[in-house]
């Protein structure tokens, strides 16, 4: 068991390293495409700098951005995977190690004591760990460090249900216009609808990690994703908010049922560096790492 625990910890450290230093190639290709389609010198310079930075990070195995974020792990635990409650401690230990070894910037701040220096704190809430229980014998871990700039532009509103889809769409457009230059565009947009005031935000964050360019299985929702992505780009915020180049690279919607009296909507935005890496570990200790978007 100790061996498996060490394997999970090592894998989580490696996932944080990959996430911080290697942007999924699908995103890189999309940024390149954005550069090709941009005429203005200012926008081209921003996208060119981003691409050069991505290359430097991959070649040097260094974090592409100094803000390596607050660490989140999305975890799926199979019924027959041997580890349970120890998983949290293992992921906390992995975060401490990654902070030293990658290195990550210490970003966990205690309101009274200041920076905890190891990306771990307060009362067990950071790193954030989202755990799902699933059938099977495997463990899936996604490491997702997310920076403060794009985290600060998240938006949340409890809409009147009578406003319906039109109200949702208008709120999303307003949220992105408000975000403007502040969170390092071109953006990725995650939208969570329903659940409650809390769940819609979690769904929005998880929506960011849906496969790149995939669309919702419900064709009506898929059409709204396409429509919103197009309208967000019509805002013309551009790379770094300087008005040239793409505003958003992808957009996903995740839905839950809502209370009859509530229409909660969450908008979670990622900068161009939507950093994440995923691994599946079998109960026997086989690890497969997936670096794709």
């Amino acid at each position: 068991m100790a061996e498996l625990e060490k394997l999970v910890e090592n894998t989580a450290v490696e996932l944080l390293r990959i996430a911080a230093t290697e942007l999924p190639v699908e995103y890189v290709e999309e940024i390149k495409k954005g550069l090709e389609e941009t005429d203005g010198a200012v926008g081209r310079a921003q996208l060119g700098n981003i691409l050069e930075d991505i290359d430097l990070a991959r070649e040097g195995s260094k974090p592409m951005c100094q803000d390596t974020g607050i660490v989140a792990f999305m975890v799926k635990v199979g019924d027959n995977f041997p580890l349970r409650s120890r998983l949290k401690e293992i992921l906390v230990d992995a975060t401490r190690r990654a902070t030293e070894e990658v290195p990550l910037r210490p970003n966990a701040v205690d309101m009274f004591k200041g920076n905890t220096r190891d990306n771990v704190g307060l009362n067990g809430y950071v790193p954030m760990i989202f755990i799902d229980l699933v059938p099977g014998g495997d463990l899936e871990i996604i490491a997702m460090p997310k920076g403060g700039g794009s985290t600060n532009i998240a938006a949340h509103r409890m809409l009147k249900p009578g406003l319906g889809w039109k109200g949702i769409k208008q709120f999303v457009i307003e949220a992105l216009a408000e975000a403007g230059s502040l969170g390092c565009p071109p953006y990725f947009v995650g939208i969570g609808i329903g659940g409650g005031e809390d769940l819609c935000m979690t769904l929005a964050k998880k929506a960011l990690l849906k496969p790149f360019k995939s669309r919702n299985e419900n064709p009506d929702v898929a059409a709204i994703e396409d429509e919103l992505l197009e309208k967000v780009n019509q805002l013309g915020i551009g790379a770094m908010g300087l008005g040239e180049g793409p505003t958003a690279l992808d957009l996903h919607i995740e839905l839950a049922a809502r209370h009859p009296a509530s229409l909660p909507v969450g908008v979670v935005i990622s900068c161009w560096a939507l950093r994440h890496a995923r691994a599946v570990i079998t109960g026997e200790g086989q690890v497969s790492i997936n670096k794709s978007a």
């Binding site: 981003i50 930075d53 430097l56 951005c65 390092c184």
Partner: peptide, 13 residues
């Protein structure tokens, strides 16, 4: 002076 956001290794250079 606006430096490209996120381009932390370019800046470090």
């Amino acid at each position: 002076g606006a430096f490209t956001g996120g381009a932390a290794l370019l800046a470090a250079r």
